[in-house]
Amino acid sequence: MSTQTPDTETESEAEQPSSKPHHERRLAEKRERAETKEAERAAAAQDIKGETVELKVFRFDPEIEGKEEPRFDSFTIPFEKGMTVLDALIYARDQYDSSLTFRHSCRQAVCGSDAFFINGRQQLGCQTQMADLDWPVRVEPLPHQDVVKDLVVEMDHFYDQMEAVDPFFDPDDLPEGELEEQRQSPENRENIKLSTRCIWCGACMSSCNIAAGDNKYLGPAAINKAYRFYMDEREGEQKRQERLEIIEQEHGVWRCQTQFSCTNVCPKDIPLTEHIQELKREAVKQNLKFW
C-alpha cells in the first residue's frame, strides 16, 4: 500500500493553510510520481509478448483525494488460454496497482464472493472465461448496491433479506435417539436439489429490476432460500406456515414480474423464477384451502 503514503500527508497538510507553497510542492511531486508510474505502466504493458487483452475496471475510493469520483482504469493484461476475469483482475492488482480492491476467495464458483458486472451482465469473475467475452472487457461492481470501494459492494441489505425468511430448519419433532438421523426421501431431495445450490453471491438480486425499485422486496435469492426449506419434507408444520406468511407479504413473491433476469444470471443455474412461481401457486392454494 505504498501508493497511499503521499495521500495521507497531503490530507494532514490540508488542515494547515499556512503551509501552502509546501503543499503545492508536494502536490507537484506527487503528480510527477504519478506520471512516472503511468509511464512505467505503459512500458510494462509494451514489454508483454503475445496476445494482450484490455481490462477496463470501475474505480472508486471515497477515502483517497482524487479518487472520490468514480472512473474507469484500463489495464493491459497478457492473455493466457483458460484465463478467467478473476485471473485478469489479480494480474492487474499484482502487477500494476496494488490498491485495486475486489472480493475473491475460493476461485472455483463456490464461495460466491466475486460476483461482478462483467460486460453488462452479473457473473462470477472466477467462472467467466476471458476468451468468451467481447474485448475490451469491462468490469464493474454489482449494480443496485452501494459501492464501498472499487468492485466491493455493500452486501448488508442482501444478507438481511436472506435472513428475513428464517433460513433454518425447525422440525416439529426430533428423532428419539441422540445419533438418529432425520431422513429425507430421494424424491424430495431431487425436488429441492437445485435450490440448495445457492452460494449467496447476490447476482440475482442485482439483476432484478423490481428489487432495484422496491427496497423491501425479498428478492430471488431469499425466496429461493425459503423454497428450499418450505419444500423440504422434514420441515415442521408450524414453521412452514410462518415461512409462508413471510413470503406472501406484499413485498414477497407477488413482486416478482417474471422478467427471468435472475434465472438468466444465476451462476449456479438455479431456476429461480420457477421456484418463485411455484411458491405463488402454493400461497394461492393454501389460501383457497383456508376458505
Binding site: 406472501e248 406484499e250 413473491v253 405463488k280 400461497a283 394461492v284
Partner: peptide
C-alpha cells in the same frame, strides 16, 4: 385475517 390481499389480488 384469512383474507390475504397479496394472493387474492394476484389471483
Amino acid at each position: 385475517s384469512s383474507f390475504r390481499s397479496g394472493s387474492t389480488a394476484w389471483l
